[in-house]
Structures are given as structure tokens and as C-alpha cells.
């Protein structure tokens, strides 16, 4: 092999480098992801149950199951977007890891954060074009696989 380091082979170095790698604190990270992820779900459940409660039905509006779920999604997306806009969600992400990335609030964060970042490149090619740099893959593969199972369902029905 070329290079100045005759006593160091590629394989040897790969082993050396990975042995030095400091590992993530798996237990702590998982605990945080569990706690924050669970908490976000609890918040959503509380909102949904409140929307379905008899108090809400009598005083405001009587939602059915589907309507309540849609409004809950809207509120959760708003919360994620709001916490992103006030520069808080990334701090949450640093602590909670997957616990804040996997819930729908994280989906909102992944759309709102590039929108804010790329404003400096204009509203058309910056905000408009870059909004889905993170969430795009989720939509592409989510909708495509839904079409695939839909096709199978249609054929097998």
C-alpha cells in the first residue's frame, strides 16, 4: 500500500480506530428516549380523551373518534412546530434522542427546522425547496409502501 506509514495496514487501523471509539451511553439514552417518548404519547392521549369527554361534547363540540384523532394530531404538530420556532425542540432532542424524533412532534420539527434554516436562501428555493430535506424520505417510502400494500389488498380482495 502507498503512504508513509509502512507499519500500519488498513485492516489494522480499522480495528485500532474502532477499539478507541467511545460508545454512546446506551442505557441512559434508552431511558431518556423511553421517558420522553412515553410522555409525549401521554400528552396526546390526554388531549384526545379530553376532546372525547362528555364535558367537551356538552360545552363545545361532540367529536367522534376520527375527528378527535385528527384534532389531536393537529395539536401535537402545532406543539412540535411551536417548540421548534421558539428554539427549544433541538435542546429537547439532545436529551431525549429518539424519544423526541419518533413521535409526530419530531416529524413537525423535521419540517419546520429546515424551513427556518433555509430562509436565508430565499422563500422559493430556500424554504420551499428545502423544507423536506429531512422528512422527504419518510413521505416517499411511507406513501410508496402504502401504495404497494394497497395494490396487494386490491388484488387479493
Amino acid at each position: 500500500m502507498s503512504g508513509n506509514l509502512e507499519h500500519l495496514t488498513e485492516k489494522q487501523y480499522q480495528v485500532m480506530a474502532s477499539s478507541k471509539e467511545q460508545k454512546s451511553k446506551l442505557w441512559k439514552d434508552c431511558m431518556m428516549a423511553f421517558l420522553f417518548g412515553g410522555l409525549i404519547c401521554i400528552i396526546a392521549q390526554t388531549i384526545k380523551d379530553f376532546l372525547l369527554s362528555s364535558y367537551f361534547a356538552e360545552n363545545v363540540y361532540g367529536f367522534d373518534e376520527e375527528g378527535a384523532a385528527a384534532i389531536t394530531t393537529m395539536i401535537m404538530v402545532f406543539l412540535g412546530a411551536f417548540l421548534t420556532a421558539i428554539n427549544v425542540y433541538d435542546n429537547l432532542g439532545r436529551i431525549a434522542g429518539a424519544g423526541s424524533a419518533v413521535p409526530i412532534t419530531g416529524f413537525a420539527n423535521s419540517i419546520v427546522s429546515p424551513a427556518m434554516e433555509f430562509r436565508s436562501e430565499g422563500h422559493i428555493l430556500g424554504v420551499g425547496a428545502q423544507m423536506f430535506i429531512v422528512a422527504g424520505p419518510v413521505l416517499v417510502y411511507g406513501t410508496s409502501s402504502a401504495v404497494l400494500v394497497g395494490l396487494l389488498y386490491f388484488l387479493l380482495k
Binding site: F78, A81, M116
Partner: peptide
């Protein structure tokens, strides 16, 4: 899933006007 996506897009657009990273 339109509710979630459309809300996120609209909030993203609003945030890009009113907030800075």
C-alpha cells in the same frame, strides 16, 4: 395523513417568517 403534513408545512412556512434559528 394529510392533517399532519399540511399542518407541518403551514407552520413551517409561518415559522420561516417569524423565527430565526
Amino acid at each position: 395523513v394529510a392533517t399532519g403534513i399540511v399542518m407541518a408545512v403551514v407552520f413551517g412556512l409561518i415559522a420561516s417568517f417569524v423565527s430565526k434559528p
